[in-house]
Design a protein around this nucleic acid. Structure first.
Lengths: 148, 148
DNA sequence: TTAGTATAGTCCTAGTTAGAACTACACGCA
DNA sequence: TGCGTGTAGTTCTAACTAGGACTATACTAA
């Protein structure tokens, strides 16, 4: 349904395809670098989210990283095997625990995060504040369409 | 790294988050409807791409649907099990074959595709041609940033 | 106190994903 | 003819994905 020939007939398909390509371009950015560190993008996302913070429980972590609970269990398992994060029992509510970075996790975070931020920052510096706003507005309009 | 608190510090994160949310809103749209038909989104995509067309080989189909070959094998397997598509040996090149809709596949296509198109069309009718262009431009700018 | 309801995280299922190794076939050139 | 190279699709691996069933714990109201 996202074919370019059909897009000629249905102009909205052009928009949809462009959204997909833009999203794919985003997910590709930095992925090579992340994988060289032995991490997957979701794993990196968790490390980055836990950096400079005392910890999050699963619910919070899922909201921040946009990863659903069932998936998060596996991601945290693998990060725990790598010794990068730890599950810490919550004192007050034994149903939940805090996920925190280990010493190794902290070290990794400090090594990779500034570089990643800088990388993105440089890429976005080509945008004027006006362009930034225009893109934000455009995305919100598009999102609204899909949500209705 | 896409946390909203950090977004206050790094404005580009706001853009990145908005892109993610917009993309997620898109993937959710219609998904419920598609799943009721017993299809997954990639499966639907294949059916929709093959509709009104004599057939595609794997390479073409992958390019149209943005699904890579390794994944496509499985998707087509499951559609074949459901009796909706068929692999047809190519007369000239025995390495490849055409994937075509079966009678059942055609029937399903004719039942679901017009409804889906209409659904999208109506949603996009709230956009003026100018807004349409603005969004397209915005997405292209954003894509360019990620590709550099 | 106890029953009913809600919540946190795990487990399970079915499917998607990319990428790399593999097999079979095709094609061009010597 | 036969070798080398390229291409089509499959298979394999490791991971992610959502959603629903499940377990353990917490909370709320009678």
């Amino acid at each position: 349904m996202y074919d370019s020939k059909q897009a000629a007939q249905e102009p909205y398909l052009e928009l949809v395809r462009e959204l997909i390509f833009t999203y794919q371009a985003f997910t590709k950015t930095g992925e090579t670098h992340i994988r060289k560190l032995g991490l997957t993008p979701p794993q990196f996302d968790v490390i980055a989210t836990l950096g400079n913070i005392k910890g999050f429980n699963f619910k919070e972590l899922g909201e921040k990283t946009l990863i659903t609970k069932g998936t998060l269990t596996g991601v945290i398992d693998r990060l725990e095997e790598k010794g990068l994060v730890q599950r810490q029992m919550d004192q007050h509510d034994r149903r939940m625990f805090q996920v925190v970075l280990t010493k190794e996790g902290e070290t990794l975070f400090e090594k990779i995060f500034p570089a990643q931020i800088l990388h993105f920052k440089q890429q976005f510096q080509t945008l004027t504040p006006e362009e930034h706003e225009e893109i934000l507005t455009a995305l919100r309009k598009l999102k609204k369409i899909f949500k209705e």
